[in-house]
């Protein structure tokens, strides 16, 4: 019963991490820099939903899509006005990272200004005991979260595989120069990836907020776990990404249950480091030139 409950926790956490890491990964492949702005997009999505649903009393099922698209719009705007010119100047990826950190600081403080730093609640229903399955419990919100994240994940993969824009995205992610030779407008494709990524990130933020409430800084830790899952999975592989998320979630949840609570972080990260040393290229093990020494 305890084991089953831990299993449910792991599944729930990994679903959120999958969504987070995929939202980050989809725009990481073509631009190849750590876009910390996503941390702000995660909280923006949640706070916009809060604004529409709680403060303007719009029905939740309308509020969520509006909030999602608005956050995607913000993400795209930043891309057009800041990252694109920087990219033209051939700024290094680290410089871009620093700029995205600056944008994160700006957006996070804007949220603090507008809604304050205290926790806000976005509970859809009253918190009550979940459905019992063999002694373990699962709540409606958890079921919704798991199904929504998996559905979105599948949809995005389907989109990338079979849609024309999706194919362009994959082409640009693999090789920008080659894609341009084929006549693909890589700038526009990057905008698409930022848009899709921001949508997914905002949804992830909303899903987390319905369970844990909202704070302006909620996005940073969430993004970090997404990035780590992506890198552990091995850049450029969907299966690896799922594996990375499950590994990260299991490491967190299992150490939390079995270890002395104060060493949880240390042990969870040691497991990740050990894993990276065992498989230096992540789960998918996609080859990098440097390591083949």
């Amino acid at each position: 019963m305890t084991f089953l409950q831990i299993l449910i926790n792991i599944i729930y956490t990994s679903c959120i991490v999958i969504l987070l890491s995929y939202s980050f990964a989809i725009s990481y492949y073509p631009v190849k820099f750590f876009n910390i702005t996503f941390a702000a997009i995660i909280s923006t999505g949640a706070y916009l939903t809060y604004l529409l649903f709680r403060q303007l009393n719009i029905i939740l099922w309308i509020a969520i899509p509006i909030a999602t698209f608005l956050s995607a719009f913000i993400g795209v705007l930043f891309n057009i006005f800041i990252y694109r010119p920087l990219n033209k100047k051939k700024a290094s990826s680290l410089l871009m990272l620093l700029v995205s950190l600056g944008i994160y600081i700006i957006l996070q403080n804007c949220i603090s200004l507008l809604w304050g730093d205290e926790i806000r609640s976005l509970q859809i229903a009253n918190v009550k005991i979940g459905h019992e399955i063999f002694g373990a419990f699962i709540t409606n919100v958890q079921i919704i979260t798991i199904s929504v994240s998996l559905t979105l994940f599948m949809l995005t993969i389907y989109f990338l595989e079979y849609n024309k824009i999706g194919k362009c995205i994959r082409a640009v992610s693999t090789n920008k120069e080659l894609a341009s030779i084929q006549g693909i407008n890589s700038e526009r494709v990057i905008l698409w990836t930022i848009g899709i990524g921001s949508c997914l990130a905002a949804v992830a933020g909303i899903l987390v907020a319905t369970e844990n409430g909202l704070t302006p800084t909620m996005g940073f830790n969430l993004l970090l776990s997404g990035v780590i899952a992506m890198i552990i999975g091995g850049v450029g592989s969907n299966c690896g990404l799922i594996g990375g998320s499950i590994l990260l979630a299991s490491a967190q949840q299992l150490t939390a249950y079995y270890m002395d609570s104060k060493w949880v972080d240390a042990v969870a990260y040691l497991i990740l480091i050990m894993f990276l040393i065992w498989r230096p290229l992540g789960i998918s093990g996609k080859r990098l030139k440097k390591i083949e020494i």
Binding site: P85, K89, A91, S93, G102, I105, N109
Partner: peptide
């Protein structure tokens, strides 16, 4: 307090924009 942080962020971005640091590509 928040406004100062926002200004900090803006100046950081502007400085990176204006200085012609082309930088040094390592990660990619």
């Amino acid at each position: 307090a928040n406004l100062r942080q926002i200004i900090y962020g803006i100046i950081l971005i502007v400085v990176i924009f204006k200085s012609d640091t082309i930088g040094f590509t390592i990660v990619t």
